[in-house]
């Protein structure tokens, strides 16, 4: 354990990724408190304003404060990542684990389901589901994303379970008279934790990106604000052509940085957990 901590503290990629993500977590948490305006959708000043003392990141065409929108957008992005990514991880983990551990017919059925979902383009599915919902909030969006993003996790977790199941210590526990449940809890799950952690980070980033995609094509939350909606609005109102860089660039940049930071964390963690990848 201390060895893992040691390598974690030494790993530059992990540290860089973690710093970026933490910075935005803090910004999302405390940004709304330091922002002068409380409602991201309220018209608080003249439109077309470049960044200034009153409007830190300028205003939109209609005079909404971009900074306020951005910090609330970050909040909703992290929410989607947490709920959507968490849900996808949870479903993927349970199904993959069950399939891998039980094997046999159950495995075949579950994997068939997984494979079918895997080949259906997720975005198309998301569009269909989202389009038929009369009311859409960030929570509903997260749940939809969570329910569609799990198949690859399932496959990965199943493979991992199969490999762990074949370890001799699982057999040893079995011939020690241990029940299946105890074997899963004590022998398999602990050895999968690092893996689950990494899967969650990837799903987290994936859910954020999926939400942005939905928002951008107009299937985002019908109420509230998100980074994707900001981008959609900016494009819709010709912010690029009008040279309103302060409206266009921040949401895109923040998304890129958050997702990039998460991927850096993932690569870093991989190196920490996998001794063969450790940099000497």
């Amino acid at each position: 354990m201390s060895e893992i901590l040691f390598f974690a503290l030494r790993n530059k990629k992990l540290k860089a990724g973690l710093s970026i993500v933490l910075f935005f977590v803090l910004l999302g948490l405390f940004g709304p408190l330091i922002s002068k305006y409380k409602d991201p959708l309220e018209y608080v000043g003249p439109g077309y304003q470049p960044p200034s003392k009153d409007f830190w990141l300028g205003t939109t065409t209609f005079g909404q404060d971009v900074f306020t929108q951005l910090v609330y957008g970050i909040r909703s992005s992290f929410f989607v990542g947490l709920v959507g990514g968490g849900l996808a991880t949870l479903i993927g983990l349970s199904i993959g684990f069950l399939a891998g551990y039980r094997g046999g017919l159950l495995d075949e059925m579950l994997m068939m389901l997984t494979n079918i979902l895997l080949v259906i383009p997720t975005l198309a599915l998301l569009i269909i589901i989202a389009a038929y919902l009369p009311y859409r909030g960030v929570l509903i969006q997260s749940i939809i994303i969570g329910f569609t993003a799990w198949p690859w996790t399932t496959r990965a977790v199943r493979a991992q379970t199969l490999s762990l199941k074949a370890r001799e210590y699982v057999n040893l526990a079995r011939i020690s008279g241990r029940s299946t449940l105890k074997i899963i809890i004590y022998e398999i799950v602990p050895n999968m934790l690092s893996y689950v952690f990494m899967v969650f980070i990837l799903q987290f980033g994936g859910a954020i990106l999926a939400a942005v995609g939905l928002d951008f094509i107009g299937l985002g939350p019908t109420k509230g604000i998100s980074l994707g909606l900001m981008m959609q609005n900016a494009v819709l109102w010709n912010a690029i052509q009008l040279g309103m860089w302060w409206w266009v660039i921040p949401p895109g940049l923040v998304i890129t940085l958050i997702v990039g930071g998460l991927y850096f964390m993932n690569v870093g963690l991989d190196e920490v957990f996998n001794p063969r990848l450790r940099e000497m």
Binding site: R167, E168, Y169, L172, A173, Y186, E187, P190, N191
Partner: peptide, 9 residues
Amino acid sequence: FQDPFSSYN
């Protein structure tokens, strides 16, 4: 079993 190292969690 054959592999003592993998016989222990």
